[in-house]
């Protein structure tokens, strides 16, 4: 017997859900959704569960991750209940549910708190630079290490435990038993989806956006690799240098396009931007841009006299790595990939 909670809907509004109460369950959204299947039907069911406030069922549901927000449902909903944005809000809400620290939820719900967090990180970076007497060599040296350490720590202490929680909510609560070999054999799904996001191609009229996303993900991951492991800023290898330029330029160009469409609101997905969405695209943009500039300054040999450029880059990087990656929208990319993986596992269990 399921209990219901009319207060849940109010709470979900803090995660950006709008007007979903208007839903009268006609099912148009599910009918027009090109990713919904008879076995995995959404978004109407998700709206229904949200209206009823069936938290437990929502926590173990993967459906919010199966949606790539083409926005067809929102376009056709006769009640302007905005099912697409509801799915998006559920993703934000789920992220906060998975996050053991509870910080995701706090940051989503409060813009002032988010700004404070960004400021604190910036102050941290500047104080660190001051403690090193603004010596560019040591700062850049530690900066390089910081990237590696931050990535490792965020994964080990935040993201990994959160994935385990997600696994618990979804897989353990489902009551389905799966052998370790099945987990291993199916793991291919995880990486395919992580790198290609190929499922989003199923969204109608989504080919170009998928392509942009694909290039962005590849560019981002490669830039990470190029800076952390190939030491782009220090390398003398022409190929590495050029590679880095191309990657950061790509990130910059694509994120500019994303920002533009959020400003113009020309797609369903970009009509209702939450602060977390803005931070995500803008910081990605800034990362591409500042990395490009820093590397050019290094190339031109003017970085020592213009350390501020590197400090800006480091601040952006630190904010990205300490706030957006563990608690912000970046996690969607991770959870979505795991969702596909778990989905494939559950399908095997049936």
């Amino acid at each position: 017997m399921a209990g219901i909670d009319p207060k849940f809907g109010e709470a979900l509004k803090n995660y950006g859900a709008i007007n979903f109460n208007a839903c009268y369950n006609c099912g148009t959204c599910t009918a027009v959704c090109s990713l919904s299947t008879p076995e995995n039907s959404f978004p109407r069911e998700m709206i229904r569960l949200s209206v009823l406030g069936m938290e437990e069922e929502l926590t173990s549901s993967l459906k919010p991750w199966l949606c790539y927000y083409c926005g067809e449902c929102t376009t056709y909903c006769p009640q302007t209940a905005n099912p697409g944005e509801l799915m998006m809000s559920l993703r934000r809400w789920l992220t906060s549910k998975y996050d053991w620290t509870g910080l995701s939820g706090l940051l989503y719900k409060s813009l002032p708190l988010t700004i404070v967090a960004f400021l604190l990180v910036a102050i941290g970076v500047i104080s660190f630079a001051a403690s090193q007497a603004f010596n560019s060599e040591t700062i850049m040296h530690y900066g390089h290490y910081f990237e590696m350490i931050a990535i490792g720590a965020v994964f080990a202490f935040i993201l990994f435990p959160n994935i385990i929680r997600m696994w618990y909510f979804v897989m353990v609560r489902s009551g389905k038993k799966l052998s370790l070999t099945t987990y291993v054999k199916t793991s291919g799904e995880l990486f395919i989806h992580m790198f290609t996001q190929k499922r989003s191609l199923g969204c109608d009229d989504n080919q170009f956006r998928w392509f942009e996303h694909f290039i962005l993900v590849i560019g981002y991951l490669m830039l990470l690799f190029t800076t952390v492991f190939l030491d782009w800023f220090g390398s003398q290898n022409l190929f590495v240098i050029l590679l880095g330029y191309v990657e950061s330029a790509l990130i910059f160009i694509i994120t500019v396009d994303f920002v533009k469409s959020r400003i113009q609101k020309n797609r369903e997905v970009s009509k209702n931007s939450q602060p977390s969405d803005w931070f995500f695209v803008i910081w990605l943009l800034l990362m591409g841009l500042t990395a490009l500039l820093v590397r050019s300054f290094i190339g031109l040999g003017i970085i020592e006299n213009n350390l501020w450029m590197y400090l800006i880059h480091l601040t952006v990087l630190a904010q990205w790595a300490l706030i957006i990656v563990p608690f912000g929208k970046w996690t969607h990319f991770l959870y979505r990939s795991f969702a596909m993986y778990f989905e494939a596992l559950l399908a095997k269990a049936n």
Binding site: I4, P6, E10, N21, Y24, L52
Partner: peptide
């Protein structure tokens, strides 16, 4: 199944907005 025909539909919409829960 709610049968608020004609303009009465507006009341149904208002009630949905107020967060009332409909179980069918």
């Amino acid at each position: 199944g709610i049968r608020t025909y004609g303009k009465q539909e507006l009341l149904y919409a208002e009630s949905l907005q107020l967060g009332d829960i409909y179980l069918q």
